[in-house]
Amino acid sequence: MKSTDNTIARQIVALIQAQGWPAGTHLPAQMLADRLRVSRQPVGEALALLHEKGLLTRERHRGFFTARPLAEPLADIVRGLGLEETDVVTSVYFRIADDLLRGELPLAFSEQLIKTRYGLTSAQLNAVLGRIAGEGWAERKPGYGWEFSSMLTTPDSLLQSYRLRLALEPAALLEPAYHLAPAVIAQCRAVEQQLLAGGIATASADQLHDRGVRYHESLVEASGNRFFIDTIRRVNRVRRLLSYRSMQSRARYAEHCKQHLHVLDLLERERNDDAAEFLRQHLQHTIAALSSIDHILQPPT
């Protein structure tokens, strides 16, 4: 199984989840190639791989379709499909993140710079850049080279992202057509309970981040407001780097899980006003907690 197949397959899985595509959604290879900025051949190979693993269905002369919606945390899906990255790729991914936050990497960079600086093979380079691009903190420039997002280089960026969420998320719960499906409530509740049962200590940074992202995006998606939904997905993509660093301190996570469960209980009872106010307080507490661990958000010296 080629590393490049796995990389593109992971990106396709992430796209299906991020877009909330339901079962039966058509996945044209050219559309995916355009979205992921790669050629059609590796996309076709990745689609075939995901079909073999049961994530997609295939119809003669029509192509590939989603077999089911993806509500689980992305890290859990990837691990279940056997698409995890190698230790080298994961290690270099976090080294690049640290070097970027230190200011030791230019915002505009070439593939050769990354390959040489970190001693990567071509397959490892593609895997690392594929993950970074898929998470939204770097993108290929038109013509030649790559560029990191300038929004990710200071600890205050994470706090700014939370202030945006403080304005948006409680408002989403008050939208007229708001409806959080019972199945989604059950899924979110199960994740929080698993973390309280010991998962906080054992989960990877990826898993903790994806769990939080999926929970809060689920709340906003239930609003049916496409502008809210698009905004929360964008802000979650660009805050990933500093979010990882904040997870070095996990003392606050048990209380976060309990607060998440309380919001779900209120929404299940259709007490949206109370849920919105409690969610506002929850986000304010998180902002205060992040302010208290500013030394962790700073890049290592």
Rank of each mutant, 00 (worst) to 15 (best):
G224E: 08
M31L: 12
I114G: 02
L180G: 02
D274G: 00
L168S: 08
P182D: 08
Y178P: 07
A288Q: 13
R163Q: 15
Y118H: 02
L174A: 01
L70K: 02
L159Q: 06
P299M: 06
A183Q: 14
G145V: 06
S291G: 13
A14C: 00
R165V: 07
A48G: 12
L105D: 05
A71R: 13
A9G: 00
R269Q: 15
L129W: 04
T4R: 13
E104W: 03
R102G: 07
V220I: 13
L107T: 09
R10Y: 01
L32I: 04
L107W: 01
P300K: 13
S249F: 08
Q160C: 05
H262C: 03
R240N: 04
W146H: 14
W146S: 09
H51W: 04
F64C: 01
L180A: 03
D294C: 04
G198A: 07
E277I: 13
C257W: 04
G198N: 04
S39C: 05
H26R: 12
D274S: 08
T121R: 06
E52M: 01
E59F: 10
D76N: 08
A75G: 06
L242G: 14
L125K: 11
R233D: 02
F94R: 12
L195F: 09
P176Q: 05
I96W: 03
T57V: 11
N225S: 07
H51M: 01
E139V: 10
S246V: 10
L125P: 09
V220T: 10
P155Y: 03
A276P: 04
I185M: 07
H282C: 06
E169R: 06
T66V: 07
Q298A: 14
L166W: 11
R79T: 11
Q30C: 03
I185D: 06
A23G: 13
A48I: 04
D210W: 07
H282K: 09
M1A: 14
R60F: 12
A177N: 11
T7V: 11
H285K: 13
K53M: 08
R252M: 09
P300W: 08
R40G: 02
L49Q: 12
A33L: 09
S218H: 02
T121I: 10
L15F: 11
A71Y: 05
A205R: 13
Q187R: 11
T202S: 11
D156V: 13
E104T: 14
I96A: 08
L50A: 05
I185G: 03
S110H: 06
E84T: 15
G54A: 04
R40H: 05
L55K: 01
I77S: 00
R102F: 03
Q298D: 10
R240T: 12
A9C: 07
A123I: 01
F109K: 00
D76Q: 12
V213R: 11
